[in-house]
């Protein structure tokens, strides 16, 4: 028997923290409870994406699969986290793989339910969308910073910056002409 999701569980998720009890109860109706055993994969990179997930207990690991390389560990999500919202937002397939690191209990929200709630201007849906936008904005900023750091690293290693050789030759040239003229 799947235990129902109560109002306080709904309100423990940041986007829903400030909902009224009625609004939270409405969300609870739309959520479906689900459990995963350790190591179970929730979805694979490339799967169709129609669902958003909310972690109630346990940890989920998000992996990026790179051809001919080991999986790149993107992030680990814990309880209270909402994930899986990127692909349906962009109308894309899953961009990463989600695997349970521990036993996990989570709630899933169908993307179609969110869409119809938005069309009806339900307050919880607007709040949820706004919150998701904030998270995506923060992630974009982190990625930008990392990208700039990577560029700087590549730049300093690049052989197309011959400053060292020029310095060595140039300083030797000056020193020889200054100290060792015969």
């Amino acid at each position: 028997m799947i235990p129902p999701i109560d109002v306080s569980t709904v309100k423990s998720f940041a986007p829903f923290a400030k909902l009224t009890s009625e609004e939270a109860a409405r969300v609870a109706q739309l959520l479906e409870f689900q459990t995963l055993v350790r190591g179970e994969t929730l979805f694979h990179q490339g799967d169709a994406s129609e669902t958003i997930y909310l972690i109630i207990t346990g940890d989920m690991q998000i992996l990026l699969q790179v051809p001919d390389h080991e999986d790149h560990h993107l992030v680990t999500f814990g309880p209270g986290t909402i994930f899986g919202e990127v692909a349906p937002l962009a109308d894309e397939h899953r961009t990463a793989t989600a695997t349970a690191l521990t036993e996990v209990s989570l709630a899933s929200l169908a993307w179609s339910a969110l869409e119809s709630a938005l069309e009806n201007s339900e307050r919880w849906a607007v709040k949820f969308l706004f919150h998701t936008s904030q998270i995506l904005a923060r992630r974009l900023r982190t990625v930008n910073t990392q990208f700039a750091a990577t560029l700087a690293k590549i730049d300093s290693k690049s052989p197309s910056t011959p400053t060292h050789t020029e310095d060595e030759l140039d300083s030797l040239r000056k020193r020889l002409l200054r100290d060792w003229s015969f």
Binding site: T165, L169, L172, R173, L176, L177, W180, F182
Partner: peptide, 17 residues
């Protein structure tokens, strides 16, 4: 050897590598 080496080194760095 310093005079010799100095002249060859100077010619080398003046010409460039």
């Amino acid at each position: 050897f310093i005079v010799a080496l100095g002249r060859v080194a100077k010619a080398t760095v003046l010409r460039g590598i």
